[in-house]
């Protein structure tokens, strides 16, 4: 449609040139860095606004995973009797839930970026990627609180005589957290970019993530899966992440570094695709929303 971008403007000191189409890989990540104050303020907003006028405030960060854990303990531990590698049910579920929650929140919330912020996006420009990034950061705060809570539980059980062997994998925890965030963000912004055209996806995401949880070893250990089906479960990029996370925290699980490497590759890939797609869509999405 246009091929005039070849015009030589290098002689002039323009600070900004707006052209119809951006090159696919023309990412301005520096710009996001310039807007880091905005990311900080978005994080603060999310954090403050979420618990204003609630009685329990930030306690909700802990109540939610705790109640989920108790429910899993009753349903899957007591009634269904799914084994948890000899550990107390609560510890086993809680560690899985804390890890999964971070990924799921990142995915769920970033996937609505364009739709929920359409009114702001329609009025002012700032690098759109700042919003999903701020969601990842504010969810990280939630994760850290829940993580500390998990450690408290582990210590509590350790004192009561449950033998918990924290493996050397514990050093990998920061990497695992980054992978959870990366996978959630990557999938989230891809879906977000597609929701500008297909609203249906928004409905799909909510329960899609729920179903996905059952395909990830949260309520069951990977070792309980019959060999025949294992490759399918491991193909899920979240499986090695969660399994390694559990091994790091509780000392039980199957760590396979090849699988983890596969997950890492998957994370990098999905994140790269996500950023490229998001970057392409953000420019004109106001015309379709």
């Amino acid at each position: 449609m246009n091929n005039q971008s070849t015009e030589n403007i290098s002689g002039e000191d323009w600070t900004m040139v707006i052209r119809p189409k951006r090159h696919l890989l023309e990412l301005d990540l520096k710009e996001i860095w310039r807007y880091r104050d905005l990311i900080y303020l978005f994080v603060k907003r999310d954090f403050v606004a979420k618990y204003k006028q609630t009685v329990l405030g930030p306690l909700w960060f802990i109540i939610q995973p705790l109640l989920t854990t108790l429910m899993f303990t009753v349903v899957f531990g007591k009634i269904a009797g799914i084994p948890t590698e000899g550990l107390p049910n609560i510890l086993f579920y809680l560690s899985g839930i804390v890890g999964w929650n971070y990924f799921a929140t990142c995915l769920n919330e970033t996937s609505a970026t364009f739709i929920t912020n359409a009114s702001i996006f329609g009025k002012v420009y700032f690098p759109r990627l700042t919003l999903p990034v701020s969601i990842v950061v504010s969810s990280l705060i939630t994760f850290v609180i829940q993580f500390v809570f998990l450690i408290a539980f582990i210590i509590f059980y350790a004192f009561r005589g449950v033998s918990i062997q924290i493996g050397p994998e514990v050093l990998l925890v920061p990497v695992l957290v980054i992978m959870m965030a990366g996978l959630g963000l990557g999938f989230g912004i891809i879906i977000s970019s597609m929701t500008t055209k297909y609203r249906d996806l928004l409905h799909l995401v909510k329960f899609g993530v729920q179903l996905w949880m059952y395909a990830t070893p949260i309520i069951y250990p990977l070792s309980e899966i019959p060999e025949k089906y294992k490759p399918y479960v491991i193909a899920n990029p979240m499986t090695p992440v969660i399994e390694t996370f559990k091994t790091a925290m509780l000392g039980v699980g199957e760590v396979n570094y090849m699988h983890l490497l596969y997950s890492l590759g998957f994370t990098v890939g999905i994140l790269a695709i996500g950023i490229i797609v998001f970057n392409k869509v953000e420019k004109n999405f106001m015309d379709t929303v």
Binding site: M1, N2, Q4, S5, E7, I9, E12, D13, W14, T15, M16, V17, I18, R19, P20, K21, F121, G122, K123, V124, Y125, K283, N284, M286, D287
Partner: peptide, 17 residues
């Protein structure tokens, strides 16, 4: 203000908007 992009043409700006 870069809320949406042009279909054709080019906009050049000097300074912050």
């Amino acid at each position: 203000s870069r809320v949406t992009g042009p279909t054709t043409g080019e906009i050049r700006v000097r300074g912050r908007i």
